[in-house]
Design a protein around this nucleic acid. Structure first.
Lengths: 205, 205
DNA sequence: TAGATTGTTAATCGATTAACAATC
DNA sequence: TAGATTGTTAATCGATTAACAATC
């Protein structure tokens, strides 16, 4: 409801709830409780109830939540009750893996183009896609009104391409390059860097 | 110093600082300030000083931080001043991409084995590695004293293999499967799920 | 020295938890 | 009805920020 007032940390948890709920639905379950959800995702029941209650009253005292209904609501809230076209920039190993990944379709995303700046790669096929030239990136992204990009390029060129993506109207970037990207305030970035993630655990070993 | 008392949220930021510092070092820079680091990584200068000061006094008033020295200290703190052997479980596209990724070596990690449960994949080569049978996972991991694993399997088998990894003594798991893993308290998990990460941004579109 | 920047304190801000009335 | 579980409040806990003395 009051979209601007929801803390980002709550938004980051909703996709995890959604994923768990979809798994329960796949297993044929019909209802769940904040307690059961919490056990599954490793979050306290109180926090799950609090998070969900920011957006409405989706549960029933005594019986908990209807899984299908809560899935619908979370998909609405997260705006994944529709399909988003997504591009991949960088046709290396990671770009290939993402291009072939089967897990996007049922979670709201549809890869539609792949770009690279390597003349040897441009024109080659990845599945149904033909690798396109990053020289045409801005034009192509604008024309197709793409809002989401996944960036799987070396760190050295990532910021330059990011600037192009922003210029083309992209508002969400999933960054696989091992570098902090700088973007305007209205553009969101999520970072995936396996070495960084591993380094968050070695401290405890 | 008081290792147990450092909040995890600070630990999660240190690898980001380290990455930025290594980049500055690569660019030939010798010193930096909390302000400059903050600008690069998108975090306030005050927070960076506070985070770093949890571990000692590594800066100098008036001049800031020696980049090389701070890199050394962060590497020590994060225990990546050494090389960690890492295994990959799951030889699909993502497993292949990680096996070929060149970014681990200079950040403290060394992939040493790859496993899969698919009879058609076992015995095949990925670069220098031969894909091994997950049936031998526990034995092999114990013998090599492996503490870190990257999991790139379908969600359906991820928890089962996780239990095996834990049994074999693995204490840190980088999980690419789209499912929340349940592990004992002394085992760390980091989740990488591109669809989840994308869903954290669509809310704002 | 003057200017710059740290390390640290105290204040502020925000998130989590515990508890329970409401109610299915 | 009795039992279960939500939604919400208030209390607790923790993280961030602002400010500045110390000092290079």
């Amino acid at each position: 409801m009051n979209a601007e007032k929801i803390p980002n940390i709550i938004i980051t948890r909703l996709p995890v709830y959604l994923r768990a709920l979809q798994r329960m639905a796949d297993n044929g379950l019909k209802t769940t409780s904040s307690q059961e959800m919490g056990d599954r995702v490793g979050i306290s029941a109180a926090q799950i109830r609090k998070d969900i209650s920011q957006f409405g009253e989706f549960g029933k005292q005594g019986t908990g939540y209807s899984i299908d209904y809560l899935i619908d609501k979370l998909r609405e809230i997260l705006k994944v009750d529709r399909m988003w076209d997504v591009i991949i920039v960088g046709a290396g190993d990671m770009g290939h893996a993402l291009a072939r990944y089967q897990g996007f379709a049922n979670r709201g995303f549809n890869v539609v183009m792949i770009f690279d700046n390597d003349k040897n790669k441009i024109g080659q096929k990845i599945g149904d896609f033909t690798i396109e030239d990053t020289a045409n990136l801005v034009e192509r992204v604008k024309a197709a009104d793409i809002k989401i990009a996944m960036l799987t390029l070396p760190a050295s060129v990532a910021q330059g391409i990011t600037d192009k993506l922003v210029e083309a109207g992209v508002r969400a970037i999933l960054n696989y390059a091992p570098i902090s990207l700088s973007v305007p305030e209205n553009v969101k970035v999520q970072h995936i860097d396996p070495a960084t993630h591993l380094q968050r655990m070695t401290y405890y070993l």
